[in-house]
Amino acid sequence: MSAFLLSIHVLAAILTIGPVAIAASMFPRFARLALATPDEPGRVAAALILHRITRVYAVIGVLVPVFGLATAASIGVLGDLWLIVSMILTVAAATILVAFILPGQKRVVGALDRGAPDAGGLVPDGAARRLGMLTGVFNLLWAIVVVLMIYRPGSTTGVGR
C-alpha cells in the first residue's frame, strides 16, 4: 500500500505542482506584454489562460500533501525532521500562492479586462514584476521540498549517504 500511495503522491506532484509552477512563472512576462499592448488579443488571452491554469491546478494541488501525509503515515516517518521541514515549506509555498500570487494575478487580469492602467492601487507592470519574484520564491520552496523528498536524511535506501 505504501508504494501505491507514494506513486499517487509523486504523480499528483508532477501533474499539479508542475503546471502551477510553469504557468505562474510564465504569467508575469505575458502580463507585461499584454499590458504594454492591450489591443493585441493574443497576448491578453495568453495571460488569462496562464492565470486560469494557475488557479485550477492550485485547487487540484491539494492532493499532493494529502497523499504525502498518507504515504508518510504508512511508512512511519511522520515525526522525521526532513518531513516536518518539508511540510513547513509546503505550507509556506501554498501560502505564497494563495495569499499573493493568485490575488496578484487576479488584479493584473482585472486591469487587462478593464483596460485600466491601475490594478487595485498597484501599477500593473509593477504588480507583474512582483509576481515574478514571488513565483521564484514559490518555485524555490518546491525545489527544496523535492530535494528533501529524494535525499531523506536518515533514509535506509542508501540514497544521500
Rank of each mutant, 00 (worst) to 15 (best):
Q105Y: 03
S86Y: 02
R43H: 11
I84F: 00
A58K: 02
A47K: 05
L48R: 14
I60G: 01
L48Q: 13
T90N: 02
I75H: 02
A94L: 14
H51R: 14
I84V: 15
L33I: 03
G68A: 03
R43I: 11
A58L: 02
P28G: 06
R43S: 11
L78S: 10
R52K: 14
P103T: 14
I49V: 15
A70N: 07
L69W: 08
V85K: 05
H51E: 15
P41R: 10
I96Q: 05
S86E: 06
L33D: 12
A45S: 10
I96H: 00
I49N: 06
T37G: 01
V77K: 11
T54S: 15
F67G: 04
L69P: 00
A31Y: 06
V91M: 07
D80A: 14
L78F: 00
A45I: 03
V44R: 15
T54W: 03
A99C: 13
W82R: 08
V64E: 01
Y57R: 01
V66T: 13
T71V: 06
A70L: 15
T37H: 10
A99Q: 13
A45Q: 10
F27G: 09
A47Q: 09
P28V: 08
I53H: 03
L83Y: 12
V56R: 08
G110H: 12
K106H: 12
I49M: 12
L33W: 04
R55Q: 10
S74N: 14
A45V: 01
I75F: 05
P103N: 12
A47S: 15
A92H: 08
I75Q: 08
A73W: 11
A45T: 02
F27L: 08
G76I: 05
V98Q: 12
V66R: 02
D39V: 04
I60W: 00
I101N: 07
T37F: 06
A93E: 04
A34Y: 05
S74P: 04
L112C: 11
R107F: 02
A47V: 13
A36E: 14
V59T: 13
A99H: 03
F30G: 01
E40H: 04
R43A: 10
V109R: 07
L102E: 09
M87C: 11
V109D: 15
R29D: 09
G79L: 05
K106C: 02
T71G: 06
A46S: 11
L33N: 11
G110D: 10
A73L: 15
